[in-house]
């Protein structure tokens, strides 16, 4: 800062207005000017976000498309990637470690778990970087910042829909018959999306203050994954003959990831009956979606005016 040509001289500035400072505020108030960069009220914020819905949609689709645009196979990878993922998990857990004991239709069970879990995991990861990784956008354009985490979750949802297409192929290949209960996948996904978006917004705010969270999250998420019965049946592991105290099972089954994974399994897999579901599963699913969705949104909005600073 020392290579400025001249010392700043006593300012020869012709003052813009002869009024002292408080009169500027009065002038602004008289003409109905609003404070720049102030946080809008919650209802206003919801309206602004709704007004940007087209941007949210276009941004998420654009991100999704850009992902594979340099690959020769292009958008085929949208389905190939989940299929390959499922194959790897099947090879390790189904064939090498043989975890499948006790679970009927183990491959559909596993693949459903992996896909549904991946949706939550990548939504939260993307949410953590939603603000800190897009500072350029935040510093250049004006829009409700919640558009970013929501948009990233929407991208993951679209990704999941591709995975679900792959999943249908896998289900049919392993002889799971199509059933009317498949329709239940839709409300389950909607609730999971709300939950993911809420957590993503919480993490977006945290990540914008502490960028280091992006380094930490993969470990937290992996721990969470192992507690979520993605690759084994919590129902079997914590059953009466497992020797574990019963509260362990109850605690594990309150885990939102377990709730959404098991709902999807219940909807899609014939042999995964209602008896394996946690008690009050739909109430839990709705509850988690509302708590995370609404709470996360409000938490994110509280810091709206501070994003992109520093």
């Amino acid at each position: 800062m020392s290579q400025v040509l001249d010392p700043p001289p006593p300012t020869t500035q012709a003052p813009p207005g002869p009024e002292p400072d408080h009169d500027l505020a009065a002038l602004a108030a008289r003409h109905g000017l609003s404070v720049s960069g102030a946080r809008p009220s919650l209802p206003q914020y919801v309206r602004q976000l709704w007004a940007r819905r087209h941007f949210i949609g276009a941004f998420s689709t654009a991100k999704l498309t850009a992902q594979y645009s340099q690959a020769k196979l292009g958008q085929v990878w949208q389905v190939m990637t989940p299929l390959l993922n499922a194959a790897v998990y099947y090879f390790i857990f189904g064939m090498l470690m043989n975890t499948s004991r006790g679970v009927e239709d183990f491959v559909p069970f596993l693949v459903t778990g992996v896909f549904v879990w991946t949706f939550t995991q990548s939504s939260i990861m993307a949410g953590t970087r939603a603000i800190s990784g897009n500072l350029g956008l935040v510093r250049a354009l004006h829009f409700p910042r919640a558009a970013l985490p929501v948009s990233f979750c929407l991208q993951q949802l679209q990704q999941l829909l591709f995975s679900m297409a792959a999943l249908v192929l896998i289900l049919l290949a392993f002889g799971v018959p199509p059933a009317p209960s498949w329709v239940l996948a839709v409300p389950a996904l909607v609730l999971q999306f709300l939950f993911n978006a809420g957590v993503a917004m919480v993490m977006a705010r945290v990540g914008s203050k502490i960028p280091d969270m992006a380094q930490l999250m993969p470990f937290l998420l992996r721990t969470w994954m192992y507690a979520s019965g993605v690759m084994f049946s919590i129902h079997h592991m914590t059953g009466p003959d497992s020797g574990l105290p019963s509260w362990v099972g109850t605690a594990l089954q309150l885990n939102p990831a377990v709730v959404y994974i098991d709902l999807m399994r219940f909807a899609l897999i014939d042999s995964f009956g209602g008896s394996q579901l946690p008690p009050h599963v739909w109430a839990l699913a709705v509850g988690w979606a509302l708590v995370a969705g609404v709470g996360g949104f409000i938490y994110f909005w509280k810091a709206e005016e501070t994003y992109g600073r520093g």
């Binding site: 505020a25 935040v138 510093r139």
Partner: peptide, 25 residues
């Protein structure tokens, strides 16, 4: 434009001022 916070003082605007530029999007 309301994209950076002020440490002291206030900026009042009529409507939403916009920076000309969309590069980041």
């Amino acid at each position: 434009a309301g994209l950076l916070p002020v440490e002291r003082g206030r900026i009042y605007t009529d409507g939403q001022p916009s920076l000309l530029g969309v590069n980041a999007a």
